[in-house]
Computed example of a mutant assay.
Amino acid sequence: MTTPRVRSVLVIGGGTAGNGLTVLLRRAGIAVDLIEAKPDWNVSGSGITLQGNALRALREIGVWPQVRAAGSAFDSVGLTAPDGTVLHVARDVRTGGEDLPATVGMQRPRLQEILIDAVRASGAHVRLGTTATALHGDADGVNAEFSDGSSGRYDLVVGADGISSATRAMIGITERPEPTGMAIWRTPAPRPVRVERTDLSYGGPAYIAGYCPTGPDTVYAYLVEPKRDRATIDPASYAEEMRRLAAGYGGHWEQIAASITDPAQVNYTWFDRHLVEGPWHRGRIVLVGDAAHACPPTLAQGAAMSLEDALVLAELLTGADKFSEQLLLDYHARRLPRVRMVVENSCQLGQWLMDGVRDADVPGLMARTTAVLKETP
């Protein structure tokens, strides 16, 4: 059965996927209500690495000029020994096309601010500090009830509320994120002189020690280690813990480590694997981004996959004269193989590190992955 095209959408979650989708739908004249649980619209975090296919999506959303101005672009990645000796520098693949950089590093809060500005300019109706408490769907739409006591009816509801998605639970999808066994310490830091790209060190006291330039004066630094019981780590000791790990690395890490003094600036997170294999919708409620899939950042593809979801779903919804369930089935069919590859390959890279595999075919895996990512989603 087909019905008139989608004219009103509720987007639950104002992160990367939800913001991007909102802008795309508003551009097509669709009325969008966006609700976000956090009153500050989740303007937080340290840094983010955006590969070319993420930049391609951001260009389609219309914010590439702002991202380019705010971030730091580069086209190579370095491999260093724990003491800081550069072992190899490789040219990175421009997965977004030759007219875009291979990679842009930027401060995560700045990316969120850029997307927020685009949502506000789009004319979407935004409510912060608000959640959906109930969703009741029928053949023609969805009735939503909200934490502020209000309600509304929509042609479609999109759950873009992240890896712990309440929307996913509401519609009865039972898959949940599972820890991979790794965890990451992250912090912003002053940018050392002569840091022009991401450098990665495998080995030393952590599985991975890396940093990425995020602007003229800043970097995003991270250390990956075996996951610990989070209850045993006092948040007041986060800076001390990260400094202790960083002390095992030389080169630019000496300056970075010396700057890690504020525990409030340090984030500690487990790596999770998450993939909903079956359909990402129930009736007229559909998932995008981390609500449907998430993976360790070993390939730096989390934001890219979420942005691609938004592109594909918006394309299908705005390109059809009529709405039918087949549109949501087509969305899932287009996204699942690509997302599954990214999730599996991201986890494989981490597993090789945890298992101490020294002859792993990392170059082959990377080449196969980037060949797919160069294709439009």
Rank of each mutant, 00 (worst) to 15 (best):
R282E: 09
T214M: 00
V276Y: 07
G215E: 07
Y238V: 07
R228W: 02
E241A: 15
T269G: 03
A247T: 10
D262Q: 11
L223M: 08
M242K: 02
P263F: 03
M242D: 01
D272P: 05
G248E: 03
E277L: 14
A258N: 08
G215W: 00
R273K: 15
D217Q: 13
G215I: 04
Y249C: 04
S259N: 12
L223G: 03
L223E: 01
P216T: 10
C212D: 06
Y249E: 11
T218V: 04
P226W: 00
G251S: 06
W253S: 04
A236H: 10
Y249V: 14
W270P: 02
E241Y: 00
P279E: 14
R282K: 09
W270E: 13
W280E: 02
A239W: 07
T232K: 10
P263G: 11
Y238I: 04
Q265W: 08
I233M: 07
S259K: 06
D234A: 05
E241C: 13
S259R: 03
P213D: 03
G215D: 00
L275G: 15
T214I: 07
E225H: 09
H274F: 12
V219S: 02
S237T: 15
H274E: 06
E277S: 14
N267Q: 12
G278T: 14
M242S: 02
V224D: 05
E277R: 15
H274T: 10
A236E: 13
L223S: 09
N267S: 14
G215M: 07
A247L: 15
W253N: 12
D229E: 05
K227H: 01
G251F: 01
I260P: 00
A231S: 14
V266M: 04
S237E: 15
R230E: 12
I233L: 14
T261G: 12
D234Y: 08
T218I: 06
V276N: 11
V219P: 01
K227I: 08
F271D: 11
A231Y: 00
A257H: 01
H252N: 12
Q265V: 07
L275W: 09
D262T: 06
A247E: 15
G278D: 14
R273E: 14
L245K: 09
P263Q: 12
A257C: 10
G251E: 08
I260V: 14
Q255E: 14
P216I: 02
A221N: 03
Q265Y: 04
A247M: 11
E240F: 01
D234K: 10
T214C: 06
R230D: 09
Y268C: 11
K227D: 10
I256P: 01
L275P: 15
P226E: 08
Y249H: 13
W270F: 07
A257R: 10
H274G: 06
A264Y: 02
S259C: 12
R244V: 01
A236K: 10
I256E: 04
H274N: 08
L245N: 07
F271C: 13
V276K: 10
G278W: 04
G250E: 11
R273T: 15
E225A: 15
Y249Q: 08
P213H: 02
A246N: 02
P216F: 00
A247K: 14
Y249T: 08
D229F: 02
Y222D: 10
